[in-house]
Simulated assay, not measured.
Amino acid sequence: MPLEWYSEALGAALELLGGGVQRGILFSDEAPEAVIGKLGLEGFVPEPQGNALTSILLMSQAKVLIGSRSTFSLWGQYLGQSHAFWPQGFDLAKYKRPDAEKDIFV
């Protein structure tokens, strides 16, 4: 996904949360520090070193997830039942029944 999409999704997530984020964790296949810098994410830290299960369990504790078209983030949302922002055109129905309240498309 383009970085611009993540910026837009983050803005929508902040609006949903009603203000600024005091702490956020960035999960990324790219160098997290570089993405944090490119997006100017204050209060965000890279995911702690661990394994995939640790990452998914950490994601499941989020109030809001911003997910790509990855099933990895779907597992975090499924376990935590959080709100999640997904790209327009992402066919969630291939993986789960979309929830009109919690699944938000940007």
Rank of each mutant, 00 (worst) to 15 (best):
L16D: 02
G20T: 12
A62Q: 11
A31C: 04
G24W: 14
Y6D: 09
F85N: 01
Q61R: 15
V45H: 11
Q22K: 14
W86C: 10
K63Q: 08
I36V: 11
V21E: 04
G43Y: 13
D99R: 08
G76D: 07
A34G: 01
E47V: 14
A31M: 04
I36D: 05
G20Q: 03
L41A: 05
S55I: 01
S73Y: 09
L58N: 04
T71E: 07
K102Y: 10
Q88T: 04
V35A: 09
G37V: 00
R69D: 05
G50S: 14
Q77E: 08
K63Y: 07
P46W: 07
L16I: 08
P48G: 10
G19R: 15
S68P: 00
V64K: 07
S55M: 11
W86V: 08
A34Q: 09
I56R: 02
W86M: 12
A9Q: 03
T71N: 13
G20C: 00
K38R: 14
D91I: 02
E33L: 07
G11W: 10
L65R: 04
G89W: 10
A13I: 00
I36Y: 15
S73I: 12
L92K: 02
Q88L: 12
D99G: 10
F27R: 00
M59S: 04
L74M: 11
G43N: 13
M59T: 04
K94I: 06
S73D: 08
Q88Y: 05
S70A: 06
I56G: 06
S60L: 12
Q49C: 01
Q88D: 09
G11R: 07
E33C: 00
Q81Y: 13
G37H: 02
K94D: 07
Y95K: 00
A31R: 04
G19F: 15
R69I: 00
W75D: 03
F105R: 03
H83P: 00
Q88K: 06
P2F: 03
L92W: 01
E30W: 12
S55W: 05
L10C: 12
D99I: 03
V21K: 05
A34R: 11
E15M: 01
H83C: 10
Q88E: 10
D29F: 05
W86Q: 00
E4D: 13
F72Y: 13
V64F: 06
E8N: 03
G43E: 13
Q61K: 15
L74E: 02
A84H: 03
M1W: 00
W75H: 08
G11D: 05
V21Y: 12
A9C: 07
L58V: 08
Y95F: 15
L17I: 00
P46K: 10
